[in-house]
């Protein structure tokens, strides 16, 4: 009798130990998300520190020439930053109006069937590899734009910007539409009861009520646009140039990283370290955006 009891106790003991071990392993797995973030920041910061031993931060932040691969090397990030912002601006000029209009249309106007067909199709677009969009930008959109703008060079920022804009439309339309659909029906009915049209309801009632979700969609789109790599690397040319004119070829931060990675750059050289410094700028930009999005969401969230 006592033996059986002790046996049970022993069983319970091993069982508890097993549970503890499993819980610890699962915790470590979850904690890997933190470890990855720390590793990203650590690698970027350490390599950038090495970079800033050779290049002054002042030159890096204010220089208008970026030519680390030439004999006469200059390390001013502004040309890459200008390229990144110009491409992102073109992309957003396409994606924000189109995405918002499509979201409002799908949420407030479209018949059920249209919505159920178009939404999965738009979401499928999100999964198409971006290198394919690079092909479109270089071989379809640039020649197409050249019909209207004969002076447009074969590599330019306009075509990749437009293509990025088109493929981030689903990010905006899908997130913004979800936010609009979450607005309670009673608010729409209240507006209709006052005699408002669907358009007035959509603009004056639904959109303000869903604004935090819509802003979240915009933030997602901006961070996709500045982080997009392959389309720009293929279709914008790879020469860093300090210009905000989308009709010119230029390089973005991401395209520069690709360009260096494609060549034979010695491990530990300044050019090698420069891609980490450029990457750090990109991470700081996206982090700032994420924080901004978080604050906006908190500030303007409407709870029903």
């Amino acid at each position: 009798m006592a033996n059986a009891f002790e046996g049970r106790l022993a069983h319970k003991f091993t069982r508890n130990i097993k549970e503890r071990v499993i819980e610890s392993i699962l915790f470590l797995m979850a904690f890997s998300a933190v470890a990855i973030t720390v590793a990203i920041l650590a690698i970027l910061v350490v390599e950038s520190l090495g970079f800033f031993e050779h290049v002054s931060i002042f030159e890096f932040l204010t220089g208008t020439v970026w030519s680390p691969l030439f004999a006469d090397a200059h390390y001013g990030i502004l040309p890459l930053l200008a390229g990144t912002l110009t491409v992102a601006a073109v992309a957003l000029a396409v994606a924000i109006p189109m995405g918002t209009i499509i979201a409002i249309y799908l949420s407030e106007f479209a018949p059920h069937k249209v919505r159920e067909t178009v939404k999965p199709f738009l979401e499928l677009l999100e999964s198409v590899p971006t290198v394919v969009f690079g092909y479109f930008a270089l071989l379809y959109f640039t020649p197409f734009l050249q019909i209207f703008m004969p002076g447009l060079p074969g590599f330019n920022m306009l075509a990749p910007g437009i293509v990025i804009g088109v493929f981030i439309i689903p990010y905006i339309s899908s997130v913004a539409e979800d936010a609009m659909r979450a607005v309670p029906m009673a608010m729409r009915e209240g507006s209709y009861a006052m005699g408002a049209t669907r358009f007035q309801t959509a603009i004056r009632v639904v959109t303000p009520a869903a604004i935090s979700g819509i802003v979240a969609a915009y933030v997602l789109a901006v961070s996709r646009a500045i982080g997009e790599t392959m389309v720009v690397a293929i279709a914008a040319g790879l020469q860093p140039k300090f210009t905000f004119n989308p009709m010119e070829p230029a390089a973005t931060i991401t395209a520069y990283i690709v360009q260096v990675s494609l060549g034979d750059v010695e491990h530990g050289s300044v050019a090698y370290q420069s891609i980490f410094a450029a990457g750090l700028v990109l991470v700081v930009m996206t982090l700032a955006l994420n924080v901004f999005g978080h604050v906006m969401r908190k500030r303007y969230r409407e709870i029903y």
Binding site: A33, I40, L44, I275, V283, N290
Partner: peptide
């Protein structure tokens, strides 16, 4: 946050 980090940054890591 990791979901919002550009993919090329994972390449640098």
């Amino acid at each position: 946050n990791l979901a919002g980090v550009p993919s090329i940054i994972y390449g640098l890591l």
